[in-house]
């Protein structure tokens, strides 16, 4: 079992320690018996979407994100082809916005995005840095994390999280958050969310195995301290959210 992870723009789209998502996923996959290669692409490169089983991009400063959009757009078809053949995609933080139709910056300039989905994003001069507790039908436990965004996203027809008990959704406080379509996952949660949410990591592994046609082991490996870290954060955040 061999898998290639394509990490897009790790030199600058990793503002809140997002690089850790790739490391943690890799280690979980290896513990499941998969041999993993991580490939990185910078703005100047042509990303090798053809070989990628998993494609990841994290958060960046707003101006860096615009540069990432410009770098990625010429490779839109190759990216779409990878999605069509079932590659698992995870875009977190403002990388999520790249999957929509456009991003409008705080000065009003409209930047075209990949257009895998119809949603559109508008940036403001206000930031929403908030702890998050999020709920999805895709796995049992609540997801925990943090967001640090300055935008609202409208027109998401399939959010990843149906509701939040803490945090700011795509358009409003505690509203639906993120985007999911097939194997494409996106959320404005920043940082190492796979470190924080082992159930999300497990879901991605199941999707990766299914896409490859590999047989899933009966039990996925549990790595030390991850579940405990999750429980503590969940307890702290739900205590604050008022249950």
């Amino acid at each position: 079992m061999e898998l290639t992870i394509l990490h897009l723009y790790p030199d600058c789209m990793s503002l809140y320690g997002e690089y850790a998502n790739v490391m943690v996923l890799r280690r979980h996959l290896e513990a499941t018996g998969v041999s993993v290669t991580v490939e990185t692409a910078l703005f100047e490169d042509t990303p090798d979407f053809e070989r990628a089983g998993f494609i990841y991009m994290g958060a960046g400063a707003e101006r860096t994100q615009k540069a990432a959009l410009a770098a990625l757009l010429p490779h839109k078809e190759a990216f779409q082809a990878a999605v069509d053949r079932g590659a698992v995609v995870l875009f977190t933080g403002n990388a999520m916005e790249a999957l929509g139709a456009s991003v409008t910056d705080a000065a009003g300039k409209v930047w075209p995005a990949l257009g895998l989905a119809d949603f559109t994003t508008v940036e403001t001069d206000k930031r929403t840095p908030e702890d998050v507790v999020a709920h999805t039908a895709l796995w049992e436990s609540a997801a925990v994390g943090f967001m640090n965004k300055c935008s609202t996203t409208k027109g998401v027809n399939a959010p990843l999280f149906d509701r939040l008990s803490l945090g700011f959704g795509n358009e409003d406080e505690k509203g639906p958050e993120g985007y999911v379509s097939g194997n494409v996952f996106a959320t404005h949660l920043t940082g190492p969310i796979l470190v924080k949410n082992p159930d999300f990591t497990d879901l991605l592994i199941r999707r990766l195995f299914a896409a490859k046609g590999w047989e899933l082991p009966e039990k996925l490996p549990v790595l030390p301290y991850e579940r405990e870290a999750y429980e503590v954060t969940l307890k702290e955040l739900t205590g604050r959210a008022g249950g």
């Binding site: 809140y16 320690g17 925990v144 940082g191 190492p192």
Partner: peptide, 11 residues
């Protein structure tokens, strides 16, 4: 202020 944010540990 209250936060459960620990992503800075990775920096």
């Amino acid at each position: 202020y209250f936060t459960g944010e620990t992503s800075w540990l990775w920096d």
